[in-house]
Design a protein around this nucleic acid. Structure first.
Length: 182
DNA sequence: GTGAAGAACGGCT
DNA sequence: AGCCGTTCTTCAC
């Protein structure tokens, strides 16, 4: 899993998300990984006050509904090739409050050739989202299925997080488990 | 008309 | 090599 973790350190951000605190791995370049479930147990804890302040501050504002984009520098070193291309396409093409389907993201990224059957590349895109190292920064939660919300990593808790974020952005109607900023 | 099940394909861990 | 955050088609009520 974590091969190049030399210059990487992690910190946690307390969030109102159903999944609890967010785990963020940072490097000199920026944010390299974000996990709803902790998986950076082997990394040293981040001791840089400015990074901690920037990450916790912006994430906090975003999740409180006071910020529409995080504007945090992203270290793409954990993703490469088509994976990175799709993530960057998503980041650039889908703004706050908008959603896109797996199939359409596949087409717009251009990674899968000119045009393919919607069903072919869509699944691959889903796999890429599942493997997205920088969740939240790259709005993988805005990628939905053709006729539903689609899936999300981490099983059921993951779906809750996705719905929570989509509700925050005004895409979904508030649900009973909504405990965000109202 | 609505609901459920199956096959196909490409890339990540 | 195995595992999917899908989709579309088709069969069954």
């Amino acid at each position: 899993m974590a091969e190049r973790t030399a210059a990487m350190s992690w910190l946690t951000v307390d969030t109102p998300l159903p999944s609890g605190p967010l785990h963020v791995a940072v490097t000199a370049q920026g944010v390299a990984a974000v996990g709803y479930l902790g998986r950076e147990g082997e990394l040293p804890r981040c001791a840089d006050p400015s990074k901690i302040a920037a990450v916790t501050g912006r994430v906090g504002e975003y999740l409180a509904g006071r910020r529409r984009q995080l504007d945090l520098p992203i270290d793409w070193s954990l993703s490469a090739g088509p994976h990175r291309a799709v993530l960057q396409t998503l980041l650039r093409e889908v703004p706050f409050g908008r959603t896109i389907t797996y199939g359409e993201l596949a087409v717009r990224s251009g990674v899968f050739g000119e045009v393919e059957e919607p069903g072919l590349a869509a699944r691959t895109v889903g796999q890429m989202m599942a493997a997205n190292p920088v969740a939240l920064l790259v709005p993988c939660h805005r990628v939905v299925a053709a006729d539903g919300i689609g899936g999300f990593g981490g099983g059921r808790v993951g779906i809750d997080v996705k719905r929570w974020l989509l509700t925050l952005e005004g895409v979904m109607e508030p649900t009973l488990d909504w405990n965000g900023p109202l």
